[in-house]
Design a protein around this nucleic acid. Structure first.
Length: 454
RNA sequence: GUGGCCGUAGCUCAAAGGUAGAGUCCGGGGUUGUGAUCCCCGUUGUUGUGGGUUCGAGUCCCAUCGGCCACCCCA
């Protein structure tokens, strides 16, 4: 029979060997645990949504995968109603708009699910067509206190501290402030997004390249240089605020943005985020379509090349396309697939357990199966994850299996041991083996496992 | 979508126009009931696909498909 070549689809290639999956799951669990610590509630939404819901914001068709059956007749295909979601924010907006009357506001939810984008994948940078996002958002009804904007850095801080992947910096900026600055430099509205995009590259590109870009957007050389200087000033956040206050640009957007930035950073400190972990950074631009106020971007201090590991911001009205109620919100997103890929590449992840089970009960004598199963049952009763080797195989092969899979303890017993009322308990790492009376097996295994942790 | 690089065993790669190989992995063995080392044996290929040049093509030429990288954008 002709075999089908086992192969994956470009960009749909994130599957792991069990050992890597365990490591991935550990990272996911850590993120979830921290979200829950702050009282965020879990939700999931369907993988596919109505096309008009997904495209309500416009401009994203290119990367959206539409749904259609393989055997669909042409007319049906043309009428495809559904498509795979490309982020978790649009589905959230739809979700909240649909359930406004049942939810408790401010609504705090976390969502950890896959999303799909038809862009060119770049494996080395952790970019795929199917990937996990971990989002938290806080949605208010009509109003939402700036204090929630200050709470977000606190969640980020707790989470990445827990991850123990080195020093990181939560860089904070404000879209209104940026808008005010551009207004001051008389950048026309139509050119604003191009200018911001250019400023967003200050970390990657040399000054000359950016000044050139600003010039081609119509800025005078002197103004461009001045703008560049302000945007790239790196100071303690208090100093940056003082500097911005001194500039005293006279427009509403600037004044309001500066006020918000001051209040949010001040409050973040009260939430316990140390000054070493955050900074005001005017070159952070982020999500031009979404955010209207505070924006965040987090990077690792020792691994700038990894880029942003978590980003988000405040928006005035989440569900304006779906509801008349004004729903302001603030949230962040972690690209988990990307984060995992990059952290693993940089060797920053803790090694995972090699198997979820700690004990392997070998089968030396198939006739004694009942006794092996009884030992395993007793261990599981005591919350010790245990596997029984059920294939008839030479004992050497069973130990090889135990070693490869990473069990910590193997239990072996045959007629000889059972005759004495004992079993052999072996620590696989140290290769030490001892006889243990049947009644004490669980207690002894538990003791060995506890010792190893310390 | 635009530009550059690359397709040989499951994986990493040799073979510079003349019989397709190595390492690794995987499987078996090294006499009674103990794994990571070592030794022996073994499986694996329409050289991405199609055409052309040649006595002869993995190698040269053309086309095509696939992959990687950069740009755009973003997680």
């Amino acid at each position: 029979m002709r075999k089908v070549r086992p192969a994956l689809l470009k960009g749909f290639d994130q599957e792991f060997l069990p050992q890597d999956q365990l490591q991935f799951d550990a990272l996911l669990d850590l993120i979830r645990r921290n979200f829950e610590r702050y009282g965020f509630l879990p939700i999931e939404t369907p993988s596919a949504e109505r096309i008009e819901v997904l495209t309500s914001k416009g401009g994203t068709e290119k990367e959206i995968y539409a749904l259609s059956r393989l055997a669909a007749p042409e007319d049906e295909e043309a009428a495809a109603k559904g498509a795979l979601r490309f982020d978790l924010t649009v589905p959230l907006a739809r979700y909240v708009a649909m359930r406004e009357r049942e939810l408790a506001f401010p609504f705090r939810r976390y969502q950890i699910q896959r999303v799909w984008r038809g862009e060119n994948p770049q494996v080395k940078r952790g970019r795929f067509r199917e990937f996990y996002q971990c989002d938290i958002d806080i949605i208010g009804r009509e109003t939402l206190s700036y204090l929630y904007e200050a709470e977000i850095p606190s969640v980020i801080y707790a989470m990445f501290k827990d991850m123990a992947i080195g020093e990181f910096c939560i860089r904070i900026n404000n879209r209104k402030l940026l808008k005010g600055i551009l207004q001051h430099f008389e950048v026309p509205e139509a050119r604003a997004s191009e200018v911001l995009r250019a400023l967003d590259k200050t970390a990657k590109e040399p000054e000359q390249a950016i000044l050139g870009e600003l010039g081609s957007q119509g800025m005078a050389a002197k103004a461009a240089a001045e703008l560049y200087r302000i945007i790239t000033a790196r100071r303690e956040s208090a100093e940056t605020l003082a500097l911005l206050t001194d500039l005293a640009y006279r427009n509403e957007s600037y004044t309001q943005g500066l006020d918000e930035l001051g209040k949010v950073t001040d409050a973040a400190r009260q939430f316990g985020v140390p000054d070493t972990a955050f900074a005001i950074d005017l070159s952070v631009v982020r999500g031009l379509d979404y955010y209207t106020g505070t924006i965040y971007e987090t990077t690792l201090s020792a691994h700038a090349d990894i880029g942003s590991i978590c980003s988000g911001g405040r928006y005035d009205d989440l569900a304006s396309y779906f509801s008349n109620t004004r729903l302001p919100g603030v949230g962040i997103s972690i690209g988990l697939s990307r984060l995992f890929a990059r952290l693993k590449e940089a060797n920053l992840l803790r090694p995972p357990p090699r198997t979820p089970a700690e004990v392997l009960v070998t089968m030396l004598d198939a006739d004694a199966l009942a006794r092996y199963l009884a030992i395993a049952a007793e261990l599981r009763e005591r919350d010790i994850n245990t596997e029984v080797y059920l294939e008839r195989a030479k004992i050497g092969k069973q130990f090889e299996y135990a070693s490869k899979k990473g069990f910590r303890i193997a239990i072996t017993a045959g007629a000889e041991e059972f005759g004495r009322g004992t079993v052999k308990v072996k620590d696989l790492a140290s290769q030490r083996e001892s006889d243990v009376p049947l009644g004490e097996v669980a207690a002894r295994v538990k003791q060995m496992l506890d010792e190893k942790v310390n």
